[in-house]
């Protein structure tokens, strides 16, 4: 019984939040890693791309809600997600046409493109604030819980509650579908294979007749889809605030680098590594340890929290440094800079 209680507490406070956060980070890191693999620069505007796509999706959600169109128990935002992706893709393709293409033609150094993406970041940040302001926006509707605390306790007779919120479940399912689709696309379709070829060896890909502009276009569309999905899921599960999305840049980059920049599998794994470390190190383990301690005397007196939650950036960063020191190309083999 004590053991079961400990496991439930662990699932409730560590595993479920970390898996949800990890899925969001994985989707974000996939976007970063694709841009890095195909366009060969670190896209600092990625957090703001997420915020932009989410903003569009939020506007459509509000419009649907105003029209009385809903998905019943599911959040309306899921209905608005494809429209958000379309809006974000148009914007991103526009930026590529107006800004990035010029530097690609010039074969500018990657670091110049990084600075260019800083300019895009400023512009997108301004555009998002212009459209939706800087405040918290809540756009989640529909049912709130799949499993709530009371019914779980009644059904199992355990002391510890287990809560599964609907947005959390949606995050897991949507992220799983998105990742599966992406890998199917990259590994099975002609366009996906040409993207991988382009990422592995640009000159050879060009020689074999792959159209680089088309590869770049498809990449941006996929990046917009991943970024918007990640942003909407994060907003549904937590809340939408433009500045928070900008700050997600650090854990997202940490995930992509830990996994190996340019490697999609690495990005997914990296997302979960970062999420589990952040949640695990900033969680107060007192409750779980109390159930596990065989006698009262061995129960911990403090909270057993390794670091306060405000230091979660420090956690992603420490892992990033450790990986860079011991495996400079990431857990999975990524491209070295």
């Amino acid at each position: 019984m004590e053991l079961l209680n400990a496991l439930v507490a662990l699932a409730n406070y560590v595993v479920i939040p970390a898996v949800a956060y990890g899925s969001q980070l994985a989707l974000g890191a996939l976007g970063v890693t694709l841009v890095y693999g195909i366009l060969r620069f670190s896209n600092f505007a990625h957090g703001d791309t997420m915020a932009f796509g989410t903003t569009i999706a939020i506007f459509f959600t509000w419009a649907f809600q105003g029209l009385g169109v809903t998905l019943g128990p599911l959040p309306t935002a899921l209905l608005a997600l494809p429209l958000g992706i379309a809006g974000c893709a148009l914007f991103v393709l526009g930026t590529d046409k107006v800004i990035y293409r010029f530097y690609r033609r010039q074969r500018a150094a990657p670091v110049i493109l990084v600075i260019v993406s800083m300019g895009v970041m400023f512009v997108m940040n301004g555009v998002v604030r212009f459209m939706i302001g800087v405040d918290d926006q809540n756009f989640a509707d529909g049912a709130r819980f799949v499993i709530d605390a009371r019914s779980f306790r009644d059904a199992t007779g355990l002391d510890e509650p287990l809560v599964l919120r609907l947005p959390t479940l949606i995050t897991l399912v949507t992220a799983a579908i998105a990742v599966a689709l992406l890998f199917w696309f990259l590994n099975r379709t002609r366009t996906g294979k040409s993207m991988r070829a382009f990422s592995d060896n640009e000159d050879l890909a060009l020689l074999s007749g792959i159209n680089p502009e088309r590869v770049v276009m498809v990449t941006w569309i996929i990046v917009a889809a991943l970024a918007t999905t990640a942003g909407v899921l994060y907003g549904l599960e937590k809340s939408f605030k433009p500045f928070v999305y900008f700050q997600l840049l650090l854990p997202i980059f940490a995930s992509a680098i830990v996994g190996g920049l340019g490697n999609p599998v690495g990005a997914v794994v990296g997302g979960f590594v970062i999420a589990f470390s952040e949640v695990g190190i900033t969680y107060a383990w007192k409750k779980v340890l109390e159930y596990l301690a065989p006698t009262e005397a061995l129960e911990p007196s403090g909270l057993v929290q390794l670091l306060s939650t405000d230091y979660k950036f420090a956690v992603s960063f420490a892992i990033l440094i450790l990986v860079l020191l011991f495996r400079p190309t990431g857990l999975f083999k990524g491209q070295s800079v």
Binding site: P110, V114, Q247, L250, A254, I257, S316, F317, V337
Partner: peptide, 28 residues
């Protein structure tokens, strides 16, 4: 010392992270 010879993108992310950590320390 902890990020010796880190080049371009990696140094960028490392410094971005350290700045956030310094601010987190000052705040907490």
């Amino acid at each position: 010392k902890i990020a010796p010879g880190l080049r371009s993108d990696y140094l960028a992310i490392a410094t971005l992270g350290i700045a956030e950590i310094i601010i987190a320390i000052l705040k907490n």
